[in-house]
C-alpha cells in the first residue's frame, strides 16, 4: 500500500505527479495556515468573563492582501496546468509517429484492435483481442476510443491517463509507456451493473516481445 501516487509508468506521469505535488504544497500551506490559525484563535480568544471583543468591521488592507494572494496563485497555477494540458490532451498533442490501437468499449469488456504487421488500422491484417492491451515500451501509442452502448472511461492508473469512450464519438488518447510490466486497465465511468468488473490487463513489453506476441496473436485470431 502506497501513501502517495502509484508507479510512474508513462512519459507524462512525471509531469502530472509534479503538478500534483506542487498543488499539494500550495494547498498544504493554505491548509496549515487556516487550521493553525483557527486552533490558535479558538484557544486564545475563548470567552473570559468581563471582557468585550474588539469592535471592528474589517480592514480593507488585510482583505486586499488575502484577495490578491490567492488570485495571483490561482492564475499562475492555471497557466502552468494549461501548459501541460495542451501537451497531454490538446487536439494537436498526439505525436505524429504514434502507433495506433483501436479500443471499442462495450458492456462490459474492452475490445482491443491491433494494426497487425503493417502498423495501420483499417487493413485486413488487423486483429482483435478481448481485455488485453499489449503495448511496446518507449513508443507513443494513440488509442482510438469508441463505445458500443454507453459511456465508459479508459483508465490506466500507472499511465495517469483517462479518457471517456462515448457512443457516437471517436476520441483519441495517447501515452507512451516507460516501464515494462503488467498493469491494469479499468472503467472509470459507471456503465451498468458490470461496471466493477470491466477490467483488462495491460502488458508493457519490449519491442521484440511485442512483435513476437503480435505474430502469435494474429495467427490465433485468424485461425
Amino acid at each position: 500500500m502506497h501513501w502517495w501516487l502509484p508507479l510512474k509508468g508513462s512519459t507524462f506521469a512525471g509531469e502530472v505527479d509534479g503538478l500534483f505535488l506542487a498543488i499539494t504544497i500550495i494547498t498544504g500551506i493554505a491548509f496549515v495556515l487556516v487550521e493553525v490559525g483557527l486552533i490558535w484563535f479558538v484557544v486564545k480568544y475563548r470567552q473570559r468573563p468581563g471582557r468585550k471583543a474588539f469592535y471592528t468591521h474589517g480592514s480593507t488592507r488585510a482583505e486586499v492582501i488575502w484577495t490578491a494572494i490567492p488570485a495571483v496563485t490561482m492564475v499562475a497555477l492555471g497557466l502552468i496546468s494549461n501548459h501541460y494540458w495542451v501537451r497531454i490532451k490538446g487536439r494537436n498533442s498526439v505525436p505524429p509517429n504514434a502507433y495506433p490501437i483501436a479500443i471499442h468499449a462495450k458492456q462490459f469488456e474492452w475490445q482491443v484492435t491491433y494494426p497487425g504487421p503493417d502498423g495501420k488500422l483499417g487493413t485486413s491484417d488487423d486483429f482483435t483481442v478481448r481485455n488485453q492491451l499489449h503495448v511496446p515500451v518507449g513508443r507513443p501509442i494513440v488509442v482510438r476510443l469508441t463505445s458500443e452502448d454507453v459511456i465508459h472511461s479508459f483508465f490506466v492508473p500507472v499511465f495517469r491517463v483517462k479518457q471517456d469512450a462515448v457512443p457516437g464519438m471517436d476520441i483519441n488518447a495517447w501515452f507512451q509507456a516507460t516501464v515494462p510490466g503488467t498493469y491494469e486497465l479499468g472503467c472509470a465511468e459507471l456503465c451498468g451493473l458490470g461496471h466493477y468488473r470491466m477490467r483488462a490487463q495491460v502488458f508493457v513489453q519490449s519491442q521484440e516481445d511485442y512483435d513476437a506476441w503480435t505474430k502469435q496473436a494474429a495467427q490465433e485470431a485468424s485461425s
Partner: peptide, 24 residues
C-alpha cells in the same frame, strides 16, 4: 480556479471575525 478567490476571501473573513473575539 478563479472561484477559489472569493472562497478564500470568505474563509479569511470568518477567521478575521474570530480574531480578538470573545468566543462562546
Amino acid at each position: 480556479l478563479v472561484i477559489a478567490v472569493p472562497s478564500a476571501v470568505k474563509t479569511f473573513n470568518w477567521m478575521g471575525t474570530m480574531w480578538r473575539g470573545n468566543l462562546r
